[in-house]
């Protein structure tokens, strides 16, 4: 490029500068200006165009759909205002799904993040074969959610399941029909979620822990702080941002739980005979794509969104206090 410029300047007898030549130089400047100004937008445009079509449009249009009545067989829509919402808020099945979702979420997330912290703390020690242990706890990630649910559903089988056999071996009641009751089905589903995600969260926490300067611990040791004390007073407050991140992710994931309970119900949307483990996501699919009541499903989707915002907000204020607010 610079070579080019040089020859131009060194040109001994320049032919009369025709308009074409001037034009090409100024047009080059024009294009380089255009390049500076416009190319950034060109580079981000694929994302935003796709987002507008497949992200923003459905999101906004859900609001419109939720104000429509689609009749019985998914026929013509007619505007009904907020009727879908008032109907939903009085719908016992919807509230049942809300309670199930929140219940399974709490049952899965609290022990999961707690265990992940313990696990990360252990992984943060000086160990031989560090990579082996890290890969080991991440192993569940190589399965798909559907695969986990299928394997665990079989393990929780009433007659031939390994868990019931194990319980019998230990001398406890061993004919539990895990699907039949709320407590047992919630426990089973929560265990699937925990099995798959505890190691993942532990690795994320471990990454946070490794950024903590080690002198902090040395100083605390000199002051005679026990390792438990060090964990609560140094580790936890220092990785608070990481904890908040995992709480966000688990809240969104937990409140939109779908594949595990669906497979636990043998690929049905009802979540058991009395809907004992039907989650909101299952309820939305049941209303929208089994009963073809699009308006009702869309309204439920918006209520789910509000629930997620609430959940994230509550959990955030709660987690912010971790490790004392010193």
């Amino acid at each position: 490029m610079s070579v080019n410029l040089h020859t131009e300047r060194a040109d001994p007898a320049p032919p009369p500068p025709g308009p074409g030549r001037h034009h090409s130089r100024s047009s080059r400047r024009f294009w380089s200006q255009m390049d500076l100004k416009a190319t950034p937008y060109f580079l981000i445009s694929p994302y935003f165009i796709l987002f507008a079509i497949f992200g923003l449009f459905p999101l906004v249009f859900t609001l419109w759909v939720s104000l429509q009545d689609y009749g019985l067989a998914g026929g013509d829509a007619s505007f009904t205002g907020l009727k879908n919402y008032t109907k939903l808020l009085a719908d016992a099945d919807f509230w049942n799904a809300v309670i199930n979702t929140v219940g399974i979420f709490a049952l899965a997330t609290v022990p999961q993040l707690f265990l992940a912290l313990m696990l990360a703390n252990a992984l943060n020690k000086r160990l031989r074969g560090r990579l082996f242990f890290r890969l080991g706890v991440l192993l569940p990630l190589v399965t798909s959610v559907v695969a986990v649910a299928i394997v665990f559903t079989q393990l929780y089988g009433r007659d031939f399941g390994l868990f019931n056999w194990l319980l019998g071996f230990l001398g406890v009641d061993h004919h539990i029909d895990w699907q039949s009751a709320k407590w047992s089905s919630w426990t089973a589903i929560a265990s699937m979620v925990d099995w798959r995600w505890t190691g993942y969260n532990a690795i994320i926490y471990l990454a946070g822990m490794q950024t903590i300067p080690r002198d902090l611990y040395e100083a605390a040791s000199i002051d005679g702080a026990s390792s438990r004390r060090q964990f609560w007073s140094i580790t936890l407050p220092m990785i608070r941002p990481t904890i908040i991140f995992t709480v966000f992710v688990s809240t969104i994931g937990g409140l939109t739980l779908f594949a595990e309970p669906v497979m636990f119900a043998s690929n049905r949307m009802d979540g058991g005979a009395t809907g004992q483990f039907q989650t909101i996501a299952m309820y939305i699919v049941e209303q929208g794509f089994r009963n073809f009541d699009y308006g009702y499903a869309a309204a439920a989707a918006w209520l789910l969104f509000i629930l997620i915002l609430l959940g994230v907000g509550i959990n955030y204020t709660f987690v912010r206090r971790i490790g004392g607010s010193k």
């Binding site: 994302y47 987002f51 497949f54 992200g55 449009f57 459905p58 999101l59 249009f61 859900t62 759909v65 966000f248 969104i252 939109t256 779908f258 996501a281 939305i284 699919v285 929208g288 794509f289 699009y294 499903a297 869309a298 989707a301 918006w302 789910l304 969104f305 997620i308 994230v312």
Partner: peptide, 21 residues
């Protein structure tokens, strides 16, 4: 705006209009 939309479960939220689309 991208960071904000990462918080929204688009797949579940927009599932009905996406299907209609």
């Amino acid at each position: 705006s991208i960071l904000l939309t990462m918080m929204v479960p688009l797949q579940q939220m927009g599932i009905v209009p996406l299907y209609q689309l």
